[in-house]
Structures are given as C-alpha cells and as structure tokens.
C-alpha cells in the first residue's frame, strides 16, 4: 500500500536530507525548470534503465515484487549486501512505461549502495519532485508505489 502523502512520515527524520546521490540528482534536475527541457532530461534518464539481471530474477516475476498501483507493471528488488547496504533492481514490463523506467533508473542509480537508514530518508512523495504534479493520478500512484516498495524493504531490514 502506498504511504501517507505527507512528505515527512513518522519514519522519516524531519531534518533529514535525501541520500547524497539522490540529493545531487535533484539538484541537477533543478537546472531544468522548463517543462520540455525537464522531459528531455528524464527521457535521457529512462534510456539508462536496465532490467533486473537474470541472475537475480527471471520471468514470470513474483507478484510480491510488483509495485502497488503501477499500471506499467514495475517490479522491485532490494537486495541486502554483505556491507549492510542495499542493491536495487527493477523491471518495467510495459514498453510504454517511460516514466516508470525513468523512476527505476533514478532509484537504482542513486540508492544502490545506501544503507536502509539512508533509504528511509527518501521522501515518499519523490515522484512529485521529479515529475511535477502534471502526471495523471494513475501514473503518479504507480510511481509512488515504486518508492513505497523501496522504503518498505529498507524498513523491514531495520525491524
């Protein structure tokens, strides 16, 4: 289930900044205030999306890995590493799910190698920060679901 719309839910330190690599990405994104420039930038990010490697998962992907409400059928793997960090992988089954691919590429690139504590500093409404508020409700729900899956995995490790 998606989390509260409140960008500062109880499990998130109000004073916390997003993990450094994600913060740097958001800073870069701020250089594209123009909508079409931002879209072009996000498409270039989506082009970097890589599907979960075969050694981690093969089709059919398990339902428990599927992000809730995501119409693009996004699957999420958050694998604990020996050093206590997490390695993220994604699969987006809808070839038209460009926003979901961009979201997957961003999360994989900026959060892999983070500790669960760092991942819990990711704002749950991150998709709004990245894509703006022009996305349709259905699309936004799916992207929020992807973030929620990653945060849930981190929370489980800390439990």
């Amino acid at each position: 289930m998606p989390e509260s719309r409140d960008p500062r839910p109880a499990t998130q330190d109000p004073a916390a900044e997003p993990p450094p690599k994600l913060a740097a990405f958001l800073e870069n994104l701020a250089f594209f205030p123009d909508r079409s420039d931002r879209i072009q930038f996000l498409i270039s990010v989506a082009d970097k999306y890589e599907e979960v490697p075969e050694e981690v998962a093969t089709r059919p992907f398990p339902k428990e890995r599927q992000a809730p409400h995501c119409e693009s059928e996004a699957y999420v793997w958050a694998l604990p590493q020996p050093d206590g960090t997490l390695r993220l992988h994604f699969a987006v089954e809808n070839p038209q799910g460009v926003s979901a691919m961009a979201m997957a590429a961003i999360l994989e690139d900026t959060l892999s190698g983070c500790t669960p504590e760092e991942i819990l500093r990711v704002p749950s409404d991150l998709p709004y920060e990245i894509f703006g508020r022009e996305l349709s409700m259905g699309k936004t729900m799916g992207l929020l679901g992807m973030v929620a899956m990653v945060r849930s995995a981190a929370r489980r490790l800390l439990a």
């Binding site: 879209i39 072009q40 996000l42 498409i43 989506a46 038209q96 460009v98 926003s99 022009e134 349709s136």
Partner: peptide, 23 residues
Amino acid sequence: SNEDPLVYPSGHVPGAVEIDWTR
C-alpha cells in the same frame, strides 16, 4: 495523445504531433 508525458518525446510515429490533455 498519452497519459504519460514522457512517452511522445521518447519516440512517436514519424510525423505525429502531440496533444497533451492537460495542457
């Protein structure tokens, strides 16, 4: 015309223009 605003710029039928439902 799409739900996802990233879809048209990521590739479309040659010659097609875009109409965005919100904008």
